[in-house]
Design a protein around this nucleic acid. Structure first.
Lengths: 343, 343
DNA sequence: TTGAAAGCGCTAACAT
DNA sequence: ATGTTAGCGCTTTCAA
């Protein structure tokens, strides 16, 4: 079933079919109706490969996601998908593991699918201009920005929160309540990405309060995965109970922390306060409700798409868009009480 | 950068390049090496549209997902993606809303992308043979089967749990503990899919115990979404506290239930037992841990792909594969105690 | 072992 | 307003 069949069936040329398919104005209404009817009756659906091939440029944008399974990124991804579809573009997605390189994956995707642009979701961003050069299409980094690279701001777009500042603010929220012994729960202190930035915010917030960094209060999980976070906190609690609060760099990890604390007989927030960043759906339903700085998830995805399309249509140049989180007050915050030192 | 450029660069014909690209044996090693080097140096990546177009059949399978955002389906989807990639096939995904029709979406996808086969994830399945006929490629239903249709078993494949039996078993677990007043939390009692089947299991389990169905104990949420489930339970609790247990048809809804119960001052499991079906990741971290019948999520996705590929390669015919859940004992089950009747 | 050439199904420039 | 035709970049006979 090809365009040719439809042409024969309706007694016009394939060009006319193509015109109808692409909503060209110069087709007589009568003919258009006839063609539409034929398409309907034959259940004809255009071959998208052929279409893309002859168009040389497709209306497709690529999304490269690092860290599948993360509920936060999943929500952003859904928002991106919705926005892309609404703009009548299509989207191809490519999940990569944490060890793979998003730039080369993206570059390959662009060539393979003749993409117009790219969105990187949850990436690392310590790229150099040389790496970027292989991309050849505009791109926007969603949920992070070029904090570790040496990139010209004109060379890329991004939608992100100020991870450093938000972490700083989170920890300040704890110190303002009187907490001094604040643990941090993270994936790693040096991932060249948000984990590292948020860790820095933690360190500096402590320093601004004259609290020196205690390495024993760094809870480093094997990954951002909830299971790993749980194990990390569990192990941590076996050795250390001399703290009054935890700053978790992500909601999923915070959920694990609540459970681990509970299992260890520690009550949140009476024995340990907890604050985190993300604002995923399920963290509204922990007991107590997680207090967290909510990222504007839906907006971030939507903006990423809007910016990319604007750049593609030459409506504007690249830009870096910083968005703000909003504190969702749950029930995981309290003033510190003296904890019995049980080493 | 096309195959032609590579041909000129390496001084051979495009046919030879194509041969190298597709690992044909009849290329001299020397030439192959030269071509590979050229490809490398030029950063050449084949245009997949052109490839697909000339091959008439692609190594692509489509996945139509109904109910994006559901964490359970998300996990299955990831498993499918992994299996597809491992088999050197590629995958295209299509999310549809709950009001859309997966068959027509699937049929259109098949024609548009020349797919070899389809996997339906989280569908409804009350299809008729006529609808199926429009599909024209093998397909497998993942997480459900043709419970409501009149389909010949040779006409499709599926990987599923026995929703009716699992629900029956869940409710029996509660009655065995002595519970008589058991509420059910679901999306709708008649979705022609798993919600309806699990509801039926609930009804029949009660009946088998001589307990008659109490319509006041049916908690019908607007959707499967956690927020809607929460609201539904919240409303329910305003009117009705004369029950000792809840059977939640999905983990996400169960998580919402725990929270709503907690907010209403009811303790799980002392005041209300809770059991559900699914076994998503985060339900290990509720307080108390959700007691749930865990579906073999990873397996279900992987089997769906394996079956489809086997059917495609004529290694076997269609089949319906029923898998079993495994009870994950959490802390949401207890014997009933007398509740004060507060209407 | 290699190359020439005919498509795959569509779009778009050009002609009518 | 409609048709003719030349590609888009690749795979795959068929010939050499």
């Amino acid at each position: 079933m090809t365009i040719k069949d439809v042409a024969e069936y309706s007694g016009v040329s394939i060009t006319t079919i193509s015109r109808v398919l692409n909503n060209h104005p110069d087709v007589r209404e009568e003919v258009r109706a006839k063609v539409l009817k034929a398409i309907e009756e034959l259940h004809y659906v255009p071959n998208s490969s052929a279409r893309d091939l002859s168009k040389t440029q497709t209306d497709t944008i690529g999304v490269v996601v690092r860290g599948a399974g993360n509920p936060f990124l999943n929500s952003v991804l859904r928002s991106i998908e919705t926005a892309v579809r609404k703009a009548n573009y299509s989207m191809v997605m490519c999940q990569i593991g944490s060890s793979e390189d998003e730039i080369s994956e993206g570059a390959s995707l662009v060539r393979s699918k003749r993409l117009k642009g790219l969105i990187f979701l949850g990436g690392r961003f310590d790229y150099t201009p040389e790496q970027i050069a292989t991309l050849s299409v505009p791109f926007v980094c969603c949920t992070y920005t070029n904090s570790f690279g040496s990139l010209n701001r004109k060379a890329y777009s991004s939608v992100y929160i100020d991870d450093y500042a938000e972490a700083f603010r989170s920890v300040k929220t704890l110190t303002n309540l009187g907490h001094k012994k604040i643990a941090v729960l993270l994936g790693t202190t040096c991932d060249r990405s948000i984990s590292e930035l948020r860790f820095k915010g933690y360190c500096d917030a402590l320093e601004s309060e004259g609290i020196s960094l205690d390495k024993n209060l760094i809870i480093e999980a094997k990954s951002f995965h909830i299971d790993d976070a749980f194990k990390a906190v569990e192990n941590f609690l076996k050795k250390n109970k001399d703290f009054t609060a935890i700053f978790s760099i992500a909601d999923a990890m915070g959920i694990a922390a609540i459970k681990a604390l509970y299992n260890a007989g520690l009550k949140v927030p009476e024995d340990c306060s907890l604050i985190s960043i993300d604002g995923i759906e399920v963290s509204k339903y922990t007991i107590p409700t997680l207090t967290t700085f909510v990222q504007p998830i839906e907006k971030m995805g939507r903006y990423a798409v809007e910016i990319l399309l604007d750049v593609l249509n030459n409506n504007r140049g690249n830009c870096q868009l910083k968005v703000e989180t909003l504190l969702r007050e749950g029930g995981t915050l309290a003033k510190p009480k003296n904890l019995i030192f049980t080493p």
